[in-house]
Amino acid sequence: MAPELQNARKTDTVFRTENLNIYYGDFLAVRDITIEIHKNKITAFIGPSGCGKSTVLRCFNRLNDLIQSFHMDGKLFYRDQDLYAAEIDPVEVRRQIGMVFQKPNPFPKSIYDNIAFGPRLLGYKGDMDELVERSLKQAALWDDVKDKLKEMGTDLSGGQQQRLCIARAIAVQPDVILMDEPCSSLDPISTLKVEDLLQELKEKYTILIVTHNMQQASRASDRTAFFNVEANAKGQRTGYIVEYDRTEVIFQSPQEQATQAYVSGRFG
């Protein structure tokens, strides 16, 4: 692990951004993102489709670097370390900051190998069987799969696949887990299981979650950022944060009219 990132684990504010503007080519997708993300809290991003929630989320583990047209200005600090500083290796960043995607995306490998992939990359020396079991238990999947670890991860049901992806993300013991609509392809029961899981995970991890589900945000998160989107003079639809506060405040006594309208479902 890079020493810069190692030292960074100590402070209490996990992420701090200053006036992020994120572009895809000439298109300004999101503007003026200034936000602080707190340790061992669940932070939810809500807002209408296309307002840039996923775009902002992918900045935190530099996954946007894979998109050629992407560029960004402003500052993004991960525990006082500038995440986009020249000496920072995005690969190292992603080992600290895990991600769970909207669509379950297990590798076409066995359940066991899905979990073991990340630790093997990191050169994990401990007892792999034990790590696999622990990760699956944390993701509430162990009882479903303990007798078929050699079977393909892709043969599981959608909800099980998503929990497998969560287990895979926590197997590398990241500092932060980013989740982009992790429950959007799940049934209500699996969704509740994942939400319970989030409450357990936040003891150890800091979690950022994008969700379209208002109940989920209000039930499961500690802080909520409401994003909106606005066409500028050039007709580009640029997203921005309207309001960011404790979840109770956002849902019960928001400052902004737009937030009030959105969380009560009167948005249009």
């Binding site: 583990n61 996954l63 894979l66 690969v91 895990g98 995306n105 992806c165 993300a169 590398v172």
Partner: peptide, 22 residues
């Protein structure tokens, strides 16, 4: 699928690790 590729990168795999192992 690109989703699988992203999953590997998201776990901190390099390009080569992603190509050869996934």
């Amino acid at each position: 699928p690109t989703e699988i590729r992203q999953a590997a990168y998201g776990l901190g795999a390099t390009r080569w690790e992603t190509i050869f192992q996934i």
